[in-house]
Amino acid sequence: MFNVELYKGSKEEKYRLVLKQLAALIEGETNRIANLSNAAALLNQFLENVNWVGFYLVEGNGLVLGPFQGMPACIRIPLGRGVCGTSAAEKRTLLVEDVHQFPGHIACDAASQSEIVIPIIKDSDLIGVLDIDSPNKNRFDETDRRMLEKFVEVLAKHL
């Protein structure tokens, strides 16, 4: 694998390299858990100033914890509750600069200060969400949003 940390390009160029790495990692693999596990590990290695990277998957009327990198996390989240549940229910990306200002925020890790959650949609069906937390406020920006949405698009094709 190419070491993106040594690459001196722009943030968007680094994300493009990670997209290529993801595609290479999951090409030809059909196992959902394996692909989600490698995707979480890849993002955890690539992203700076994050303390949790992982997935919550739709189960019944809520989300259940999937593959992740970081501290132990909440196991079940109702649709419409917290950042993950709201993103899933509304099927839209949420970029939260300060999680303590988000109504109904679920504090799984007290160190988390900001968060981005991207819904995973395949064939119009919600599969789950990609959740990334940071110990820094205002960690995520529009480049993160745009490129992580592309990351999820690539990933969804292999789920």
Rank of each mutant, 00 (worst) to 15 (best):
G80D: 00
Y56V: 03
A89M: 05
R92V: 02
S134Y: 07
H105V: 06
V152D: 07
A107E: 11
Q21G: 13
G9I: 03
V53G: 04
L57V: 12
D144L: 08
Q69W: 11
N3D: 15
L79Y: 06
L57S: 10
I26T: 12
P67E: 14
I106T: 03
G70M: 08
K11A: 06
D141F: 02
S10Q: 05
A110T: 04
F102D: 03
E13A: 11
N31P: 06
L130T: 02
A24G: 13
A88H: 02
S37W: 06
G54H: 09
V129M: 02
E149W: 11
E97I: 09
A24I: 06
G54M: 09
N136L: 14
D144Q: 05
R16L: 10
K137L: 15
L126S: 02
A89K: 06
L36I: 08
A23D: 12
R92G: 08
F102N: 05
P103F: 10
R16D: 14
Q101S: 14
E142G: 00
P135N: 04
K8H: 10
D109S: 01
Q101M: 10
A156F: 03
Q21T: 11
E97G: 12
V50Y: 06
P72E: 07
L47S: 04
F102W: 07
S114L: 08
L79I: 11
Q113Y: 09
L47K: 04
S124I: 01
F55G: 02
V96C: 07
L47P: 09
E48T: 08
V4N: 06
N35P: 11
E97N: 15
L155G: 04
T86E: 07
R81G: 00
G128K: 14
Q101A: 15
I118C: 02
I106K: 08
L6M: 10
I132R: 05
E5K: 12
R81F: 14
V58N: 13
T30V: 07
E29R: 11
